[in-house]
Each structure stands twice: as C-alpha cells, then as structure tokens.
C-alpha cells in the first residue's frame, strides 16, 4: 500500500479549491444570479444552472481524480519501462 499521505492520488490543493468554489456556487447569493424568468432550450434557467454547475463540478472532480499523478522524477522511468 502506498505510504505517501497523498496516496498517489489527487493533490489536496485543487480539491480544497474546488470545494470552496462549490460552496459558493451552490449557495446564496450566487444562486440569485440565475434566479430569473429566462429559459434555456425552453427550460427554466435556475434548474438548468444548478444541474449544469453540478455536472461541471463532477467533470472537474473526475478530471482531477483520474489524471495521472504528476511525478517529476518518475515520469521518465515509466516511459523507459513501457
């Protein structure tokens, strides 16, 4: 098992930043930005916005989680081995 605190996974910084961003995006007063009678493709803006933000966050989380961990020293080795 990987003993490194990061466990070879995503780094803490981007995750914490994303968390803070989500906290702001999902709450008052940010929500009032989308609170209007407009529609997108015939759908009410507020609902679409919330789901879009949500999907965006999932996308970012997936991207942060799934990209290869950057290892400054390890990258070349891996290439050599493959």
């Amino acid at each position: 098992m990987n003993r490194h605190p990061d466990g070879g996974g995503p780094r803490r910084g981007p995750l914490l930043a994303l968390f803070c961003a989500a906290l702001v995006l999902f709450n008052f007063p940010m929500l009032t930005v989308f609170d209007r009678d407009a529609t997108v493709f015939g759908l009410p803006l507020l609902g679409v916005a919330l789901f879009a933000i949500w999907a965006g966050l999932i996308g970012l989380l997936a991207w942060i989680s799934e990209r290869r961990p950057e290892r400054r020293s390890g990258r070349r080795h891996r290439k050599d081995l493959s």
Binding site: G7, G9, L16, L18, F26, L50, L57, S65
Partner: peptide, 24 residues
C-alpha cells in the same frame, strides 16, 4: 418547493470533493 429537493444531493457533492482527503 421546486428546487428545494436539491440541497440533500448538493451536500454529498460537496462531501465527495473532499472524499479523497477526509474519507480516505
């Protein structure tokens, strides 16, 4: 209540952003 069903799922989204740190 319209969008009021959502906070119960947005909260888990927030938690999942920190899952790698806290849950692990």
């Amino acid at each position: 209540g319209g969008i009021w069903f959502l906070p119960v799922y947005l909260g888990p989204m927030l938690a999942m952003l920190l899952a790698w740190i806290v849950l692990r």
